[in-house]
Design a protein around this nucleic acid. Structure first.
Length: 237
DNA sequence: CAGTATCG
DNA sequence: ATAT
């Protein structure tokens, strides 16, 4: 049977609807914000004005520190390709999850955190009630169609008082936001190009994840053809 | 357990 | 959805 047709006909609970008018599908969306949970805020479209400089900086970063598929501690390949910038980078291998000042693939420091990343993250954090956010790590995630990130907690940082700031570019994704226990049923939220999620305070340790990405035609940015890029800024130390 | 396999 |  045609499972794709069936899935397209099903509504996704708790998920925002897409624009009905195709002519407006890639217009800049007005900046709106939605509280997903206490301490978790979705800022729709706020990265739009930053996109050209973000992509320019991103191209230089991944030219120096290439995206790669890390391994889980159990030795399995992650479907999301990752790199980092900033003083610290999140890495995963058989030795576990941790932050490292050196890119293990190159034996060199990660590229610097660009001003564009820092300014966007601090602006988003301030709007969410975290005016003093100073990230020291940015994880870069590249999702091709089919890539996903199953439900997990960000708990490798020393300082849980700082929020996580997550920037979405390119293909849309369904974001799962769970509770503090893995068994808590997640809510679902559509993340689109230019959206930023900030989660901190009582939501800092919520389980979260991304459903498998679906291919689509976004057309606006050749660098984002058929991929989703997620920038996740953190204070690791 | 940031993945995958298997089950009803 | 559930085990791991």
């Amino acid at each position: 049977m045609d499972m794709k047709g069936l899935q397209l006909s099903l509504s996704v609970p708790n998920q925002a609807s897409s624009p009905a008018n195709p002519d407006r599908a890639q217009e800049p969306r007005p900046a709106t914000q939605e509280t997903l949970a206490p301490g978790a805020l979705l800022l729709r479209g706020i990265a739009a004005a930053f996109v050209p400089i973000l992509l320019d900086d991103l191209a230089r970063i991944v030219a120096e520190a290439p995206l790669r598929h890390m391994k889980t501690p159990s030795g399995l390949r992650m479907s999301v390709a990752m790199s980092n910038c900033g003083p610290l980078g999140w890495i995963s291998d058989r030795a576990g999850y941790r932050y490292s000042a050196l890119d293990p693939d190159r034996g060199r420091p990660w590229p610097p955190l660009p001003a564009s990343f820092l300014q966007l993250a601090q602006s988003a954090a301030a709007q969410a009630g975290f005016p003093d956010f100073v990230p020291d790590a940015c994880l870069i995630n590249r999702y091709a169609p089919g890539a996903k990130l199953s439900l997990h907690q960000d708990k490798d940082e020393r300082d849980f008082s700082a929020p996580i700031v997550s920037v979405s570019l390119g293909l849309p994704a369904v974001f799962l936001l769970g509770g503090l226990r893995r068994a808590d049923r997640p809510s679902r939220h559509l993340l689109q190009h230019g959206d930023v999620v900030v989660f901190g305070g009582p939501s800092r340790l919520r389980y979260h994840g991304i459903l498998p990405i679906q291919a689509a035609d976004i057309t606006a940015h050749p660098q984002l053809e058929n991929i989703r890029i997620n920038l996740t800024l953190r204070k690791a130390r």
